[in-house]
Design a protein around this nucleic acid. Structure first.
Lengths: 249, 249
DNA sequence: ATCGTAACGGCACTGAGTGCCACTAGCAAT
DNA sequence: ATTGCTAGTGGCACTCAGTGCCGTTACGAT
C-alpha cells in the first residue's frame, strides 16, 4: 500500500473498475455498506475510498460531500419535476397537476424499495442527514409553490394559497411515504397518495378560488333549493355531505 | 501571544467582559459584524473569537457551531411552543390553538425586526444557513403535527389530516413572515397571519372531520332531502356551497 | 487566607473538503 | 509504432470546523 508497487497497473488488479459510471456505483455501494456496518459518523471518507478501491480525492470528485452519497442525484430528480410542471397543460387543475408531480416523486422512492428503506433508516438516526433530506424536500416544495404561484397569480391571496397548497401536497406525500416505509413496502402508496390529494383538492379548491374548469357540464345535472336557516353554511354543508355519503356507494 | 505575558490580568485589560451573559452577546455581536463585513464562509471562528476578545475554545462553549451564532436559542423557543401546546385547553379548536402557536412564533421574529432582517439576509445568501433554518422550521412543524395527531387520533385519516394541517399552518406562517420581511416591517404581520389561519380553518375544518363540538345543537336546524343524481357528490356539494354563498352575507 | 468550583485559553488532534500537480490510460493523428 | 492530447486519477499539502484534555485563573464560600 505504499512502496513502488503502488504504481503498478491497477487497471487489471481486481480493484479499480475504471468504467466511467461503475466507479460512482462502486463508491456508493462501499459507502452504504460501511454506514450500515459501523454507522455514518464513525465512517471516514478514507475508509469508503479504500473499500471502493479508489483514492480519497476521487471520492470527492463523484460526491460533493459524505452526505451526498446517501442522496444521489437529488438535483437531477428535482430538475425532472420542474420539467414535468412546465410541460403541464395550462388548462389542467393545478392541484391535480401537483398531485401527479407528487406521485412522480413518490415513484422515485417506490422504484427501489430496499434502497429507500436503508436511506430512511440512516436519515432517522443521523441528524445531519435528516437535515439534508429536509432541505431537499423543501426544494421540491419551493418548486411546487412557484408553479402554483404562477397559476394563482391573478387571485386574491394567490401567493398565500400557493404556499399553503404546496406545503399541503408535500405533507401528504411525506405522510404516505412514511406509511409506506413503515408498512415494509406493502402499502399501495400510489393509491394512498391519490386518496390524500383527492381530499386535498376537495378541501382547497372547494373553499378557495381556483375552481376546476370541467365542472360546468355537470352543473346542470343537479338542482339545489336554498333556504334561509339559523344554521351556518358550514353546518348545512356538513349535513349535505353526510346525506350524500349515505346515498352513494 | 506566547510567553509569560499571556498570564497577565486580562480581566481589566479592556477586553474580556467576563460577565456571565455578556460574553455570549459579545461573541454574537462580533460574529454578525464580521459576517456582514466579509461574508459568512469567509469568516473563520478564530476571527470571531479574536474580535470578541475570547479564546477560540470559548466560542464553542457558547455556540455549538458557527451556524448557531445566527440562530441563537432556537431550542428554547421550540420548548416554549411545546409548553404552549400542552397548556392549551382540550376543548379549543385545534386549528385555532395552532394558529395561536404560529402567532407566538411569529412574535419572536417581530420582537426584534433588525435582527430578523439581518438573519434573513444571511440565510438568503448562505446555503448552509438556509438548510439549518429549514431544519429548524421543520422541528416546529413536527411539534404542530404531533399536537394535531393527538387531537385527531380517533378520526379516519387523522394522521394525514394532522400532517397536512400542520404543514399548512407553518406554510401560512412562513408566507406571512416573508411578506413582513419584504415590506420592511411595515406590514401588520399578526393581522395577516390571523387572516391566513382563518381561511385555513374554514377550508380544513369545514371539509374534513375534526368538527367542532358545538355543531350538534345546530344539526337539527337544517333538513336535507337527498336524491339520486348522475352528478358526483363533489358536484352536488359545490352547487350547495355556491347556493349558500348566494344567500348568506 | 484557603479551598473548591466553574469558566477560560491554549494545544493537539481528527476529519471534511479543496487546490495543485504529477502520472497514467486511452485515443487520435501522422 | 511514435507522438501528442485529454480526461480521469491519486497523492500531497493545506484550511478550517469541531472536540478532548489540561493547566491556569477568577470568584465565591467558609
Amino acid at each position: 500500500m505504499s512502496e513502488a508497487v503502488a504504481a503498478a497497473p491497477k487497471s487489471r488488479s481486481g480493484r479499480t473498475p475504471h468504467g466511467r459510471r461503475k466507479v460512482r456505483s462502486a463508491i456508493a455501494v462501499a459507502a452504504l455498506e460501511k454506514f450500515a456496518e459501523q454507522g455514518f459518523e464513525a465512517t471516514t471518507v478514507d475508509q469508503i475510498a479504500e473499500a471502493a478501491g479508489v483514492g480519497r480525492r476521487t471520492f470527492f470528485r463523484y460526491f460533493r460531500s459524505k452526505e451526498d452519497v446517501v442522496f444521489p442525484g437529488h438535483d437531477e430528480r428535482l430538475a425532472e419535476v420542474v420539467e414535468l410542471l412546465e410541460a403541464a397543460s395550462a388548462d389542467a387543475d393545478p392541484l391535480v397537476v401537483l398531485g401527479e408531480a407528487a406521485e412522480f416523486v413518490l415513484g422515485m422512492y417506490l422504484e427501489d424499495p430496499e434502497v429507500s428503506r436503508k436511506r430512511s433508516e440512516l436519515t432517522r438516526q443521523v441528524s445531519s442527514l435528516r437535515d439534508k433530506e429536509i432541505a431537499s424536500i423543501d426544494r421540491y416544495q419551493r418548486v411546487f409553490a412557484r408553479y402554483l404561484r404562477a397559476r394563482f397569480a391573478d387571485q386574491p391571496d394567490g401567493e398565500l394559497h400557493a404556499a399553503v397548497a404546496a406545503a399541503a401536497v408535500v405533507a401528504a406525500h411525506n405522510h404516505v411515504l412514511r406509511q409506506w416505509l413503515r408498512s415494509g413496502g406493502e402499502l399501495d402508496a400510489r393509491a394512498a397518495l391519490r386518496h390524500a390529494t383527492d381530499q386535498l383538492g376537495e378541501a382547497l379548491s372547494g373553499q378557495w378560488p381556483g375552481g376546476r374548469s370541467d365542472e360546468d357540464q355537470d352543473r346542470e345535472s343537479v338542482v339545489v333549493a336554498a333556504v334561509r336557516t339559523s344554521a351556518s353554511s358550514e353546518v348545512v354543508l356538513k349535513q349535505v355531505r353526510e346525506a350524500l355519503r349515505g346515498i352513494e356507494r
